[in-house]
Structure formats: structure tokens, C-alpha cells
Write a protein that binds this DNA or RNA. Structure first.
Lengths: 156, 156
DNA sequence: TAAGATTGAAGTGTCAATCTTC
DNA sequence: GAAGATTGACACTTCAATCTTA
């Protein structure tokens, strides 16, 4: 049994945390549902397609995608398999070194992201940014960056 | 094909959104992993156990749990089944009306949440609140509440 | 018919083990 | 051994269909 010097949250912290957690859940489910409904893509599909569509030659090494998204390698591999089965991306193994695989955006994948992006951005604006002032947006960005920096220092 | 008046995000909005999305992913995975490692509970287990442990008689109707968590009924049902199989909760069907079921916290479930709560709170403090000033916490709570209010107005 | 709840199927994410090449 | 990647098993989430009772 680990002994912890229990320091509970203050009333303000507790309220902020509950609101923040609830906000995450609401945004995640609404955005995923709308994206799925309008385009047939999942949020994960969307992330990968954006990265590939912006990459040189519309291709990346799998581990680069992993680094950009922060996903574990098994999750990435599983997801690329599913996207490949739906014709959104293609795996092109390197000759002479089977450890590496290039992930290439297909024409179908390109069409999908070109059609999905404006819908997705409009939705994010409608449910999120339309509610916030410029100051609130800046404050949120500041909080997010502050915590992310803090997390980088913490051993993974 | 739906035509959308495309309004992209400003540079600031885009940066804030990317940081915010990344923050959500980092927090979610770290908290889930640590909770699992230290207590064997998932984040969803934790949510349900907290609600039940604070409820009158340590029991609630399933749909009340659904309302508090915001989960869909099928997700809730599946999750309660898994928790029941692990002995954390018990289903007690009402007599005369099989539509309703009381979900009751077991002794084992109670022990689990009592042991997990201080560890979880300490972890949330360490990875999140330790990085933020009181002003930043308030700003975050303000942003979250603002967007949540906005979302309530939007048709679900 | 509507509300509370369950079920099965399919998509998604995590963990541990494995494989190949450097 | 370490890095890039895959696989299989299992847990989780969503969707659609179903069941029961008011």
C-alpha cells in the first residue's frame, strides 16, 4: 500500500476540473459524431489524413506520424491497417529494409480530407470558438501550453 | 454535397486549438494509465464508483448514472456489466417493474474507490494543477463553463 | 408510443509479445 | 540490445435493433 500525503483540491480547482473534464467529453463525442455523420471519417482518420496531405509528396514514415500524433506504435499500426483496408492510405515498404514503411495518401484519401476539412473547421468554430472572446482563446492556449510544458519535464 | 461558407481559424485560434487537443490527449492517456497501474480501475470505473459512493445508500438508478456522466445508455449498460463481473457493483432489479434496475456499490467497490481517490487526486494535482496559477485555473474554469453553456443551447 | 434498459456487431485503443534489421 | 513495426487478445465505445412496461 502506497502512502500518499493527501492534498485535496480546493473548491475552485474542483469545480474547474469537473467543468474541464465534462467539456472534453462533450467536445470529443460531438465532434466525432458530426465528422462520422458528414464524412464517414473518425477523428483519428482525420488527424492522419491532415498530416499526410500536408507532407512532402503526401507520404510519411509511420514513426513520423506517430511522433506528430503522440500515438503508441501499436495503435498507429492498427489504425493504418484499417485505413488501408478502406483505401485511404497505402503502405509502401522500403526495399532493403523491411523495418520501415512509407505511408502514402491515396487519391481517395486526398479527396476525403479535402472535402472533410472545411466542414470540420466550421463545426469546431460553431460549437467552440463562437462561444469565446479573443481573450478567452488566448487564456486557454496559455493554460494548455503551460501544462504541456510541465508534462514534458515529467518523465513520461 | 453540402456547401459551407468556409471560415478558417485565425492563427491564434489554430494554435490554441492544437494545444488544447494535444493537452486533452496527453491528460487522458496519462491519467488512465496511472489509474490502471496503481488501482486496476479505468477512468470510467472511477467515475461510476465516485457517484455511487456519494449517493444515498450507495445506490442509484442506472439512468441517474447516465445523466450524471453524460454517457449513452448502451455504453452505460455494457460498462455496468463489466463492473458487475468484477464485483464492483451489483444490479438489483425492482420487483413489479423490470424496466428499472438499482445499481448498488459492493463492499469491494467501496474499498476500491476509497483507496483510489487520494492517489488519483494526487496525480491530477501533480500533472495538472501544480503547473498552473490560481488565475490560470479560474480562466480555464471560465472557458469550460462558457463553452458548456453554449453547447447546452445548441440542439444536442 | 415513449422511457428505461439490454444485446450484438463493428470500430477503436492498450498491453504484451514478437519479428526484423541496424 | 535498440528501433521501427506488426500481431493477437482483450477492454472500451457507438450504432442499430430489441425487449418490457407504463
Amino acid at each position: 500500500m502506497v502512502v500518499v500525503d493527501t492534498v485535496w483540491l480546493t473548491e475552485r480547482e474542483h469545480r474547474a476540473w469537473r467543468s474541464f473534464v465534462r467539456l472534453q467529453a462533450e467536445l470529443r463525442s460531438r465532434i466525432a459524431r458530426e465528422l462520422q455523420r458528414a464524412t464517414g471519417l473518425s477523428g483519428s482518420d482525420y488527424e492522419v489524413l491532415v498530416l499526410l496531405s500536408e507532407a512532402e509528396g503526401r507520404r510519411m514514415r509511420a514513426f513520423e506520424i506517430g511522433a506528430q500524433t503522440g500515438w503508441e506504435k501499436s495503435r498507429l499500426s492498427h489504425h493504418l491497417t484499417r485505413m488501408e483496408q478502406r483505401g485511404l492510405v497505402e503502405r509502401q515498404p522500403c526495399e532493403h529494409d523491411t523495418r520501415y514503411a512509407d505511408i502514402v495518401l491515396t487519391a481517395r484519401g486526398h479527396t476525403a480530407i479535402v472535402e472533410a476539412a472545411p466542414l470540420h473547421v466550421a463545426h469546431v468554430r460553431a460549437i467552440f470558438f463562437d462561444a469565446l472572446s479573443a481573450e478567452q482563446v488566448d487564456a486557454l492556449g496559455d493554460v494548455a501550453d503551460t501544462v504541456l510544458e510541465h508534462l514534458e519535464k515529467h518523465s513520461d
